[in-house]
Simulated scan of single mutants.
Amino acid sequence: MNDYPVGQQVTYRYYVGRYYLYQHQLRKAEKELEFAFRRCTRHHYKNKRHILIHLLTAKLILGYRPTSQLLERYKLVDLFGPLIQAMLSGNVAQYVTALDAHMEWFLRMKSYLLLKERGKVIVWRNLFRKVYLITREPNRNKIRMENCLIALRISTQDPSYDEMDTEALLVTLLDQGYMKGYLHHYQSIAVMSNQRPFPPVASVHVTTEVYDESQNQRDGT
């Protein structure tokens, strides 16, 4: 691949990155898109901006936060700034509002569903981390589900959430590795690990189902 002109390498790695992004293989997508972005010259501003849009989609879900200078340079503050703020604060309603405010644009970029499905998981993680830090008792690594439920209703602005919804979200986060610990159903608490109960998002490797095109091919084709 190194024998080809840089421009062709950038184009190829960009489309490979887009393919991985579509497959939800975010770390592979990040690697390819990072290469394309860094090797694309600054004279091709529009191309670099387009690559960056998809790179940011992968990076946000992987737990990396872009600098404000980068967003300003490529005129992406209005599009990604509110999303990042809501994600960091654990504000689900604000995150959904920010995403839906530019729904047509994100749909056109093929990023909307990925940011809505996978990005919201990060928002939940940050919300429950705040609950843990605020309500934690000295020498007791526990989260009461009733506190999580209150926070969830406030964050989503949806009073219909109940204990079962809260437990399901906690199970999801524990299962995917965004939280470390276990649920005690009868005591309605989550017992958290003494070490890194909320690992950095960038260190979490989520296992997702990979689409296999060969499964859709007919026998003999």
Rank of each mutant, 00 (worst) to 15 (best):
M1K: 15
D3K: 13
Y4E: 14
Y4T: 10
P5M: 08
P5S: 02
Q9H: 05
T11I: 11
T11C: 10
R13Y: 04
R13W: 08
Y14C: 06
R18A: 07
Y20Q: 12
R27G: 00
R27H: 07
K28V: 03
K31H: 13
L33I: 06
L33D: 01
E34K: 14
F37P: 01
R42A: 07
R42Q: 07
R42H: 10
H44E: 13
K46Y: 07
R49A: 03
H50W: 11
H50P: 05
L52H: 00
L52E: 01
I53H: 08
L56T: 00
T57V: 12
T57W: 00
A58T: 15
L62A: 04
G63A: 00
Y64V: 03
P66S: 02
T67K: 07
Q69W: 06
Q69P: 01
L70C: 06
E72H: 13
E72I: 08
Y74P: 04
K75A: 10
K75I: 08
L76E: 00
V77Y: 04
V77Q: 14
L79H: 10
G81D: 07
P82R: 06
A86Y: 05
A86C: 12
G90C: 01
N91P: 02
A93E: 11
T97V: 09
T97K: 15
L99D: 06
A101I: 07
E104C: 03
W105A: 12
W105I: 05
R108H: 14
K110W: 03
S111K: 02
Y112H: 03
Y112K: 06
L115V: 02
L115M: 05
K116F: 10
E117W: 11
R118M: 13
G119D: 04
K120W: 05
K120E: 11
K120M: 13
K120V: 11
I122S: 02
I122V: 11
V123M: 10
R125P: 00
N126C: 03
L127H: 02
F128A: 03
R129P: 06
Y132V: 08
Y132P: 06
E137A: 14
N139F: 14
R140E: 15
N141C: 01
K142C: 13
K142N: 13
I143C: 09
E146R: 13
E146M: 12
E146I: 14
E146Y: 14
N147D: 15
C148N: 07
C148L: 09
L149S: 00
I150L: 15
I150C: 12
A151G: 07
L152S: 01
L152M: 12
I154R: 14
I154C: 14
T156D: 05
P159V: 05
S160M: 08
Y161R: 06
D162G: 05
M164F: 15
M164K: 15
A168Q: 14
L169A: 12
Y178E: 00
K180L: 01
G181M: 00
L183W: 02
L183G: 03
Y186D: 15
S188V: 09
S188C: 10
S188N: 14
S188P: 09
I189E: 09
I189W: 02
M192P: 04
Q195E: 12
R196Y: 00
P197F: 00
F198K: 00
P200Y: 03
V201F: 01
A202Y: 03
H205K: 10
V206G: 02
V206D: 01
T208E: 09
T208Y: 04
E209D: 15
D212M: 05
E213H: 12
S214A: 07
S214F: 01
R218C: 04
D219G: 06
D219V: 02
